[in-house]
């Protein structure tokens, strides 16, 4: 589904990604872990199309297409979804309108009939219930005045409504208490299917107790320095990231 080859990117004069190689197949869940500043979030944002980063080399193929050549909205319409670490507040636009605009924009792109209002409302209602969210929140402006936890749930709600093929979760666990974390993880797990792939970017392995990954990669200094199965996450949990630096330095 996703093939990243030798991807390098920079922000202004700083090289952040220095030759990333990663292959994600449908049905898989990958976790990308690493210390602060290792480039985890940058990778997720580059895949979503953020223009603050300049791709200096490498290629990314998504479902056989050149992902880096696609517009931001095209990537989303083709099924790429980024759940943000810091969701943006948009005063003056209701959540409900935003969600419907997103769903129908994607349907238009895919040349599918637009969603009926009643169908939209039913879908919204059931997803809100699953995530333990108040429906009154949908009348409020996008993320405005939401707590950190509410913002994260709102990201997962959007994901549930849009049903992406490739979900990128950027530090979705930060700022969540354990109950909220479980609810969010359930929301993510509900999306697991043989047709979909999920990439979880996280600093701590805590989230991976609930969203169990098939593969774990450790990113450090803009490169993937180790890959393994979920035991690698547990190893990191017990040893911390310090040993990596030693490895990277000696490499």
């Amino acid at each position: 589904m996703l093939e990243i080859k030798n991807l390098s990117a920079r922000s202004e004069d700083t090289e952040i990604l220095k030759g990333i190689n990663l292959s994600v197949k449908a049905g898989e869940v990958h976790a990308i872990m690493g210390p602060n500043g290792s480039g985890k979030s940058t990778l997720a944002h580059v895949l979503a199309g953020r223009e603050d980063y300049e791709v200096t080399s490498g290629e990314v193929t998504y479902e056989g297409q050149d992902l880096l050549a696609m517009e931001i909205e095209e990537r989303a319409a083709e099924g790429v979804f980024l759940a943000y670490q810091y969701p943006v507040e948009i005063p003056g636009v209701s959540n409900k309108y935003f969600l419907k605009a997103a769903i129908n924009s994607i349907r238009k792109y895919q040349k599918q009939p637009l969603i009926k209002t009643s169908e939209f409302l039913d879908l919204l209602k059931s997803n809100l219930a699953k995530l333990g969210m108040d429906k009154e929140m949908m009348e409020r402006s996008v993320n405005e005045g939401f707590s950190g936890g509410e913002k994260k749930r709102n990201e997962i709600l959007q994901m549930a409504m849009l049903q992406p093929k490739l979900a990128l979760l950027d530090e979705t666990d930060s700022g969540l208490d354990i109950d909220a974390l479980k609810i969010v993880a359930e929301g993510v797990n509900a999306l697991r299917s043989p047709e979909r792939a999920i990439v979880v970017v996280t600093h701590y392995q805590r989230l991976l107790d609930y969203i169990v990954p098939d593969f774990v990669h450790v990113l450090s200094g803009g490169k993937i320095v180790r890959s393994g199965d979920r035991t690698l996450a547990l190893e990191l949990e017990s040893q911390g990231y310090a040993f990596l630096e030693a490895e990277t330095a000696s490499a």
């Binding site: 199309g49 517009e71 909205e73 989303a76 979804f81 943006v88 948009i90 003056g92 924009s105 402006s141």
Partner: peptide, 26 residues
Amino acid sequence: ALFYLRSRGIPESLARKILIFAFAND
């Protein structure tokens, strides 16, 4: 905000309209 809307599949022209409306609607 423009990036956020577009990353949910909303085309740039519509995203702009939404943000202009939002600015005033506030």
